[in-house]
Amino acid sequence: MPRVVLASALTRWLDPAAAGPGEIALDAAGDTLAAALDAVFSHHPKLRGYVLDEHGGVRHHVAIFIDGTAIADKHRLDIPVAKSTEIYILQALSGG
C-alpha cells in the first residue's frame, strides 16, 4: 500500500507515544491521495489540522510530493496513487 512519510517538523506534534524520532513513514491504505491521507489521519487525528486547513485544502505552506513531484492543486486531492507510491509531506520551504 502507499507509503506516507511525515517530515520531522510534523512528527514532533504527534502524540509522543506514536511519534518516532525525526521523520516517520506509515503505510496508508487507499487508491487516491485523499484516501491515503484519511488513513493516516484516522491513526493521528490531530495531524489533519496541521496538514489541511479547515476547508480540507492543503495548507498554503505545506508541500506534498507524490513520487517526487509536488501536487499542483492544493484543493484537488483525488489524485490516483499506486501501492508502490511514496507520499512525502513536509513544510514548504522558501528562500532565506
Binding site: A9, L10, W13, G49, Y50, D53, R59, H61, V62, Q91
Partner: peptide, 8 residues
Amino acid sequence: NLGHFGAK
C-alpha cells in the same frame, strides 16, 4: 501560530 501548520 505555527506558520506552516496553522494556529493551534
